[in-house]
Structures are given as structure tokens and as C-alpha cells.
């Protein structure tokens, strides 16, 4: 089995080969489903000049917000920056290049990259800034924009459960961008909450097959910070 044993036992090992100027995908939507320990490790390593592909850039002081603090990212590709003051500042000052990409186009660029499709046409963004400088085509009476796909040197993702062979299952909306990113990284590292033996996960319900995953690490600690804690009152007390 050893060739298929993807488990690594330290964050150093998980990020072996990660260097300056790499392109890195980071899973998550807001702070939901982010690989907290892997992000922390890249922060500790201090790698610079990174091209980061992630829907958001964390919040000030947490998630990818930490990479922003150390100015580790030179180019950011994402769809929404609303909850991050430092991000907005770096964007407006031009200190960091930011390629804002519609969320669905971003997801599809990553999916396509992992699936060996170099580009695709989409109606999203036609007639807007997003389409500027891009090839467009009218197909059956509708206008489309040609969007190139994305791949990365590393994909850092978060899953709920893995087996030692790298088969993954995600939990609820913590899935988000993680499955596509798993397919688009040359080296995909999955930080998970639980690692089980092969056979313990039902093959019918694997979200990401192990072929896409090179390394699996059991996360030491997941804070799972909540951005908008919204609750309703508990129902009547007994």
C-alpha cells in the first residue's frame, strides 16, 4: 500500500517544496472550509511573491488575511473582498495585483484546469470590465467571453474526512471550492479533521477520489471562526 499512503505527519512535510513565487490555490468560502493549519504554515515559512487563487482573502488577521499582513501575495485571484479592509487597501493602492473574477467563472476556471480543458466560453461578464481584452464569440445569437482555465503548483484544501489513500469527503457548505481545487493542483494537500483506513469510507459517497490528492494531513486545530453569527431564539423551554 505504501505508494498509495498519502498521509504526512507534520505541516513542514505537508508543504515540502513550497517556495517563493508559486501559484497556490486555497479552498474555502469566506472562512468556511479553509485549511487553517496549512495557511498558518505558509505564513510561518514567509514565502513571498505568491499568486493566490481563492474566492476570498480571509479577514483581517485570519485566514489569508495573515498572508496579506506579511505582503506574501503579489497577485490575488478571487471574487469578493468585502470583509477585508487590508485587502481593499492593497487593491486600491496598487500594492497587490488583484484579478477580480466572477465567482462562477472562477469555479469553472479551476474545474476546467483540473479537467484538462484550457478555456471555455461563458456569458458571465460579457459587456463588462471582466471581458475587456478577451476573445468573445456569438454562439446561436448569444454573446460569450472566452475564459482561460487555472491550475496551480499547490492546492491547499480542507476536507472533513479522508482515508489514507486520499479519498475525501467534505462537510456541508465547507465543500465550496475545495473539490475543484483538489483537481487543479500539481501537488494537492488536504488538511482534514479525521483520517480513516481504506474501506471505511463508502465508495458511493466519496466526493474527491484519491487520485487528485498527493498529501493528507490531520489538522492539529480547527478554530472554524464564524464571520456572521446569526441565530434565532431557541424554541420554548420545556
Amino acid at each position: 500500500m505504501s505508494g498509495f499512503d498519502k498521509v504526512v505527519h507534520s505541516y513542514e512535510e505537508a508543504l515540502e517544496g513550497f517556495t517563493d513565487n508559486m501559484t497556490v490555490m486555497v479552498g474555502g468560502f469566506g472562512l468556511c472550509g479553509i485549511p487553517e493549519g496549512l495557511i498558518e504554515q505558509v505564513y510561518k515559512m514567509g514565502c513571498k511573491g505568491l499568486t493566490a487563487i481563492s474566492n476570498n482573502a480571509g479577514v483581517d488577521g485570519f485566514g489569508l488575511g495573515k498572508w496579506l499582513e506579511k505582503r506574501q501575495i503579489s497577485t490575488m485571484i478571487g471574487s469578493y473582498v468585502g470583509e477585508n479592509e487590508l485587502f481593499e487597501k492593497l487593491l486600491l493602492s496598487g500594492e497587490m495585483e488583484v484579478i477580480l473574477t466572477p465567482q462562477g467563472t472562477l469555479a469553472e476556471k479551476i474545474r476546467a484546469g483540473g479537467a484538462g480543458i484550457p478555456a471555455f466560453f461563458t456569458a458571465t461578464g460579457f459587456g463588462t470590465q471582466v471581458a475587456e481584452g478577451k476573445e468573445t464569440r456569438n454562439i446561436d445569437g448569444r454573446d460569450y467571453v472566452l475564459e482561460p482555465s487555472l491550475t496551480a503548483d499547490f492546492a491547499l484544501i480542507k476536507a472533513w474526512k479522508a482515508d489514507t489513500m486520499g479519498n475525501l469527503i467534505f462537510n456541508k457548505t465547507a465543500m465550496n471550492f475545495n473539490p475543484m481545487m483538489a483537481t487543479a493542483g500539481k501537488i494537492t494537500v488536504a488538511e482534514v479533521e479525521e483520517i480513516v483506513e481504506p474501506g471505511e469510507l463508502d465508495p458511493n459517497f466519496i466526493h474527491t477520489p484519491g487520485i487528485y490528492v498527493q498529501r493528507v494531513i490531520k489538522g492539529e486545530h480547527f478554530e472554524k471562526r464564524i464571520e456572521q453569527r446569526t441565530v434565532r431564539p431557541s424554541t420554548k423551554e420545556a
Binding site: S79, Y80, V81, L91, L100, Q103, T105, T124, V130
Partner: peptide, 8 residues
């Protein structure tokens, strides 16, 4: 600049 998210 908040970004377009999924709006587009």
C-alpha cells in the same frame, strides 16, 4: 471595491 462575487 467589494468584488462581484456571484452577481455577474
Amino acid at each position: 471595491v467589494k468584488g462581484m462575487g456571484g452577481a455577474m
